[in-house]
Design a protein around this nucleic acid. Structure first.
Lengths: 202, 202, 202, 202
DNA sequence: CATGAATGAGCATTCATTCAT
DNA sequence: CATGAATGAATGCTCATTCAT
């Protein structure tokens, strides 16, 4: 498997490495994962990995970037034919509900570890903030839509409501990070959904 | 057969070490902090530290334990002469408000890093859950009190409300972990306070 | 049964590779130059290079060999129609003068690095010595010529004088390896030229 | 062997490490010497070495610095009671003669390798030039003394003569770097000595 | 034949922990 | 008891060389 491989091949390999590394990072954490762990998991040579990523950190950042972007982009796609803002927000809650606690925990562990990592490196903090803003704007646009159609109360503070939405989502996830039953989690999402709608619909 | 050093001396020294290590862990994170960092910060010998704690990890766990216990205990103390449940909860919000964003961020970074660390070690996960339950119970007791005095609505699901309280608190903190202004943070606490009371008072 | 590629083509390619590698070795040194540096500089594939040279070391040795031989051969060529020994030696000094300090430094760096490299490998030491002897003989022949024509003093110790010539040349170059002005260098060559002639002409 | 060791102990250990590393660097060259080589040669742990020197490069530079300074300083010491400039210069030649070819070769290999290394790093080039200047000044002072006492010819260009002295010394050493007999080397030093004196005494 | 992706031994450096003094 | 020098396994990364396509 060697020379003159297609760009598609390279892209795929790159994705495979990222996926394998992600698996390890989720399993043991970024700092605790060694390159050898990744090598072992992927059954690939060290050199191969380093020919696609110049450092463990670059891999990590790239991975976080991809994940962060995917989150907002995936939603946008599904929203194409949802005219109602309420539907859009209910869809978001559905997505939360669809994710199993197990998945949630892995996702959150990765997410939080990267946040802590970013908190100690100015240029990453900046990137993180851009992502956070993207998520906030995404919500604000939905809410703006809802206000225009009269679905939501007219005196809604969009910025605050958007923050509240994510804050509720993050807080909830954090509560169930280390313990809790799937059913309790789902029912709390329902509870939160009600509260959020009570708040934005007045 | 002299007592050599008193127990009090030992306890104090132990506390000093823990405090110095905490400073470093907050500053750079647990994994990134080296024993030499702590030694340098404390102006103490490596051997001294190792005679009080058998490993860096033991120090970390002990420290987290102390912090977690202190949190609930401190509140309990102040609650002695607060008969009203509403006052007690408002007091909690006051404590959140009194903490500067800067302090919050440091506190949260330590808190989250330890949570991630605990998530990967079963025996620590257990300990963490005990703490989380303690915090939940603490809130539940307050709410129970509020229901008895009629301050809160009678059909309140105490367990859910308690979870909601902490969830709101955590979510809020997370929102402001990497960016955001002090004033925005404070006003969101106020907003959350209103929402929480609307929820528990019906 | 086609000749595929002609020998001439191969020789040319070989020369191109050697030239490109030389550029890199002079720039960064042998050990510090990676095959990738050479590949990048030549715009050629790794495989191509390895099909002409079995290792980086072989390339290096070949290159040094070529350079060493070229040095003496070039001179011999130009000497064809110089009957006077004095002219021949003056011509050598002219060649030194014509080389800019910048060129000299690059040339010397390569030369010295190879010498150090050779010093640690018996078979290369041998080869180096053959070259050194060639250079000495080359000078001795000139001087012998000069003695026959009576240009140089009759009691000249040819071997010593030849060593002295190269020793003067090397020492001078070494003096200016890391610093010094072009003009100082040139004037010292002149000075040395005078001294050498005073010595050999008596 | 451990805590609260004296400064003398540390200095000694530092010197031992430097000496051991020098041995390896001379043997295999700086780049080719691995930390493990040094560890093996010294029978010491890697950590111990790194607690005295922060990197292999720092060790190398320190070592070169020491050697370069030692050269001039040693001579200065011996010159205290040598009133005649001629004696001083003859003493220098004696020192050259006293050094065996074997020692010379090792010394020169280290010297040249460091020079090549320095040539590629601006801040080291600077340091090297300072040393070279020191050596030049050292000679110039001797010659100045000789002119004052009338030992040397009055129209001597001190700067040029000083350069010539070192240039002769370096060129000679280079000639014998890879081959040559001890006796030839010694007799060429004698020859050079004569030439130098003929030059400076007129 | 040419290509360049893959290999993996090798390297400099770090750091938690130990233990001689 | 306290000290801090010593240890050495572990880690991230490099690069000459190979060989499947």
């Amino acid at each position: 498997m060697s020379p003159k491989v297609s760009q598609a091949y390279k892209d795929e390999k790159r994705a495979i490495i990222l996926e394998g590394a992600l698996h390890c990072f989720i399993d043991k954490g970024f700092q605790a994962t060694t390159i050898d762990d990744i090598v072992r998991h992927l059954g690939m040579s060290k050199g191969a990995i380093y020919s696609y990523f110049s450092s463990k950190e670059v891999m990590y950042i790239q991975m976080a970037d991809d994940k962060m972007n995917a989150m907002v982009e995936n939603s946008s796609e599904d929203f194409k034919n949802m005219p109602s803002a309420e539907d859009q927000i209910r869809y978001m809650f559905d997505r939360f509900r669809r994710q199993s606690l197990d998945e949630l925990r892995k996702w959150l562990a990765f997410h939080l570890e990267f946040m802590l990592y970013a908190a100690r490196q100015p240029e990453l903090t900046e990137r993180w903030n851009q992502y956070a803003n993207k998520a906030l704007l995404f919500m604000q646009e939905i809410m703006e839509g809802g206000m225009k159609t009269g679905e939501f109360r007219s005196d809604l503070d969009i910025a605050a409501a958007s923050r509240l939405f994510w804050s509720v989502r993050d807080g909830l996830a954090l509560q169930f990070m280390l313990s809790g039953e799937e059913t309790d989690y789902k029912s709390m999402i329902n509870e939160m959904e009600k509260k959020v709608f009570r708040y934005i619909q007045g």
